[in-house]
Design a protein around this nucleic acid. Structure first.
Lengths: 246, 246
DNA sequence: GAAGTCCGTTGATCCACGTCAACCCCCACG
DNA sequence: CGTGGGGGTTGACGTGGATCAACGGACTTC
């Protein structure tokens, strides 16, 4: 289908004030007045097909991105080919914050499904957040939250065993789906076992075995990427009671 | 000796503009004019004795801190008593950024030696960075750098083996000592083997063994906490060439 | 709708690191 | 100057998760 009507920037724009992600995204906690002023901030939107990059490590940093639809992973590639997934991002979450420090992106952002992001020119964001207090404050919170999240992952990688890691991962996913109005107990993972493994510092076989174990124990029901949580309490208990001793 | 002269806030203050850490700390990259305006930002300084907390997880967040002298570790305690060290901080580095997101600190900051920090009231920082562009920009960079650093640690924890982790740790320390005008090849670690292990996701025995192995191989000379790097290239090679295969 | 590829599961075996234990050294303190 | 205790090293042994391998089922592609 050919677009004969010229597509203007304005027609692509969707005001934050009218976006149903307002509760999850950058505008969270801002007043209506303030949110209205955000509308000048969000330039265009950009669609990213599954498996395609939103940006790559080394790319010049110009904008941060808010996920409007779909989901992403971010990863770092080591020289020897090893991959470390540093995070999975869902709607309303921000991508690209890593680029501010050196003005180059330091990781890859790859769509896990066909997705769409709002492009937020970084210069404009700094400019506007000098005027709109709520934006400034909220942006700082978003960055700080990312730091806290990363510390959580470090804790997971540094001191949990395989099953604790997977349980923590599932609970985290569940909680984020809930925040988006989806079921806490039943959801569809968009990433492969290998990607989960990379994120959790495990091999895909170990992830698969842990899924099977959880299923045997009646904690979850797994069917490929479809997960049903049957016993949330059981998963939670797993995290804070390392299997041996204590 | 008793202070008969009243100690005013002014007398405790040390202007950023006159601080020799200006190249490493928040003011980095700012113009002289801008740095002068910072002087109103740094309230008091605070001394922290070895092993004492600068703040604890759960404390109300009010300020961030720049390390003026000494060094710290940050850690997270799990319910079951496990500890995860999330970072080691040296002079010029910032502490407390984790507190912005929830307005509560999310980790503990503990001095590794008698130390001193500059207290930066967070409200003032936001206020001033609305007016001083360089400050705003630099602050964002500091937060982003922390995110990038955390991704590095995640990569280390998620995909490196014990000796690679320790080599990466030593190179990182060396590089940071260098940036502070100390020797790149010879330095004194302020943390115990257990703290290093916690940070690297290893047990203290494993850290100790890796140190011994490096020494046997002529890569370093270890004497308790005193480290001499004899073969930087060898350590670097270790990181990117996982021992088996490839 | 057939073919090929990717993804996931499961089993057998291996090994890096954890665990347990003994001992030493360094230093703080009386 | 002797004593106690925390920090560090080293050895013997156990084990959780990696590795290697085979296979089956789900998607993708045309």
């Amino acid at each position: 289908m050919k677009a004969t009507v010229p597509i203007t920037v304005a027609s692509l724009k969707v005001a934050c004030s009218q976006c149903n992600l307002v509760e999850l995204c950058l505008p969270f906690g801002m007043s209506e007045n303030e949110i209205d002023r955000l509308d000048e901030l969000v330039g265009a939107r950009r669609k990213i097909k599954r498996q395609h990059h939103l940006y790559r490590a080394g790319d010049a940093f110009e904008a941060i991105y808010a996920i409007r639809a779909g989901s992403f992973k971010t990863d770092v590639l080591l020289e020897d080919g090893r991959e470390q997934v540093t995070g999975f991002q869902m709607t309303g979450e921000m991508l690209g914050l890593d680029g501010i420090s050196t003005e180059l992106h330091s990781c890859n952002a790859i769509a896990l499904e066909d997705s769409e992001v709002c492009v937020i020119a970084y210069g404009k964001l700094e400019e506007l957040s000098r005027v709109v207090e709520g934006l400034q404050h909220q942006f700082h919170k978003v960055m700080s939250r990312e730091i806290v999240r990363d510390h959580g992952v470090m804790t997971l990688l540094g001191s949990m065993r395989a099953e604790e890691r997977l349980a923590a991962f599932l609970l985290n996913m569940s909680q984020r789906f809930t925040a988006r109005g989806f079921s806490a107990a039943e959801f569809h993972l968009r990433m492969t076992r290998e990607e989960i493994g990379s994120y959790l510092g495990l091999k895909l076989e170990t992830v698969s075995r842990a899924f099977s174990k959880f299923q045997e124990e009646g904690l979850i029901a797994v069917q490929q990427k479809h997960i049903r949580i049957l016993n949330i309490g059981g998963l939670k208990k797993l995290i804070h009671h390392p299997s041996p001793r204590a």
